[in-house]
Simulated scan of single mutants.
Amino acid sequence: MKIAILGAGFTGLSAALKLAQAGHQVTVFESEPQVGGLAGGFKYPSWEWTLEKFYHHWFLSDKFVHNMARELHQQVLNITPETNIYIKSRILPIDSPASLLRFPYLSMVDKLRTSAVLAFLKLSSTEKPFEGKLALPWIKKWMGRGATKIIWDPLFEGKFGNLKNEVTLPWFWGRIKKRSKTLCYPEGGIAGFAQKIAGAVENI
């Protein structure tokens, strides 16, 4: 079967690879000069790795992309970074229950509420209970105004700008559910890995 795929982002490339492996004749159409979509990047001649236009990483729980990396013999680096918050001229860790409890700019009530809600989201097996709801109002209701103002509102502002109030709760659940302490990054860069997938499709 002849199949056309619009867009050479990771979704399009992974679909193209699986379809080509299944024996189909696949053509991928991409308007940009390079593959990768939002994970596309660039590379100066003196660089060994590509650099993405936007910040990306994988979680340990991203099983599909890890399986594809193994299939294509792509080396993956596992890194455990520190997550900090800059507040009142201080840089403070906020990447574990212990560091959250030590965080000096939230009340103990807000700390306990935030910890309980994050645990609830992590343990929830499906996004179904959260559908039809917006993230920030829900966070404010259950984690408290203090945690929303100091932690979550600035994060949403930085990531989504003036669209922060339109972010859905299932998206937020997915970020918390999938997040792992260890972050993963393909050797050579994510954009380089996209090029490797495209090359694998061409060679089938």
Rank of each mutant, 00 (worst) to 15 (best):
K53W: 10
I91N: 13
A15N: 08
A135L: 02
G144T: 00
H24W: 01
A4K: 09
E52S: 09
F54C: 09
T114R: 10
F103Y: 04
F103T: 00
L17K: 05
W152K: 03
E71Q: 15
V117H: 07
C184P: 03
P154N: 07
V117C: 06
V109K: 15
A135H: 01
P81A: 08
T126F: 09
A116W: 09
C184L: 10
K111M: 01
N67T: 11
M1R: 10
V26M: 00
G12K: 01
L51G: 05
K177Q: 08
I79C: 07
T148E: 15
S61I: 07
I3A: 01
F54R: 14
V167Q: 06
L136D: 00
K140N: 06
A198M: 12
G40W: 00
V35M: 03
K149M: 14
A4L: 13
M1A: 12
H56D: 02
A119G: 08
L121N: 04
R145C: 06
T80D: 12
A16K: 02
Q21T: 01
L19R: 00
V117P: 03
G192N: 04
S115Y: 09
R175W: 03
L13A: 05
K122Q: 12
I150H: 14
I204R: 04
P137G: 07
R113M: 04
N203C: 11
N162L: 11
N67D: 15
W173R: 02
I91V: 14
G9C: 11
V109E: 14
V76G: 10
F172K: 03
K133R: 15
F120R: 12
Y105I: 04
A135R: 01
L38K: 15
K149P: 04
A147W: 07
H66L: 15
K149S: 14
L38N: 10
W138R: 07
E157Y: 09
E71W: 12
A15H: 08
P93L: 00
V109A: 14
A191I: 02
A8R: 07
A22S: 14
P81K: 07
T168E: 12
F160N: 03
L134T: 04
S96V: 13
H66C: 11
L112Y: 10
K159H: 08
F42R: 02
S180M: 03
G41Q: 02
A69C: 15
A135K: 03
A194I: 01
E32T: 09
F54E: 10
S99P: 04
W142G: 01
L183W: 04
W152F: 11
